[in-house]
Design a protein around this nucleic acid. Structure first.
Lengths: 120, 120
DNA sequence: CTTATAGTACACCCTATGGTTAACTATCTG
DNA sequence: CAGATAGTTAACCATAGGGTGTACTATAAG
């Protein structure tokens, strides 16, 4: 019924890490190598590799090998679904809040608000 | 230097789960009890409790106890930072893509594009 | 009082995540 | 060729996440 795009899980999960968000911020100012992406963070190269690969796998980063370096660029189209999802539910908020307010103001109609969605 | 709001970690992580996104979708159509939130999902009550608590802890859901039921409402203000973060980097995309395109079109200036941000 | 209902707490399991060290491949440079 | 540089792979570790079953609290209802 509700469509849980598997991609949303992955994108939100990728964004839930400060290191990866930092990499995205860096990439939003232009392409960078893996080494450059990792330099600001106090962690080893394999850890950096993993983060970059995560970003690549969820489609947020594209990679191009040039000689021995890997040139990474941001591919923020992958963020569209995530942004749309959030935006959609932030919009619904206002209307549902209005309805709620109406119920609250009418006192004991609260119970109605609670049971109106039950289907058993 | 870069401000990694701890809250962003938590909100993105909360959104990275289909069950919790489903609960938010449900709540965007009006308040609901914990039981109502969990009914669509094939999992036990303690699991539901945990998901709801997660949403509550990151500030996406507010809870009000009425007798033995817990009335949950959406508090999507907590999504603002997340949405803003995404929107910010989706905006930067276009400009950085423009710069990239310029470099690509000029052939061997690619190397320049890769080194221009190094500060060591 | 007794039972059903709403929800939580606790102990536990399994797997995924984020990190490490060590060793490796591949490219660039002297 | 020898060495340095960029990056990955593999094995491992600790912790957190999502789920379970069972037991519990508290309110509602007969």
């Amino acid at each position: 019924m509700v469509n849980y795009l598997a991609g949303l899980d992955a994108v939100f999960l990728a964004l839930a890490d400060p290191t990866r968000r930092g990499m995205i911020e860096r990439l939003s100012r232009g392409p960078a190598t893996v080494g450059e992406l990792g330099r600001p963070f106090a962690m080893t190269k394999p850890a950096i590799t993993k983060h970059v690969r995560t970003l690549e796998q969820v489609g947020l980063v594209r990679r191009e090998r040039i000689g021995r370096i890997h040139r990474c660029t941001l591919a923020p189209e992958a963020m569209r679904d995530a942004e749309e999802w959030i935006e959609r539910h932030r919009r619904f908020w206002k209307s549902s809040l209005d309805r709620l307010t109406r119920h609250v103001e009418s006192g004991d109609k609260l119970t109605l608000a609670l049971t109106e969605e039950r289907d058993e």
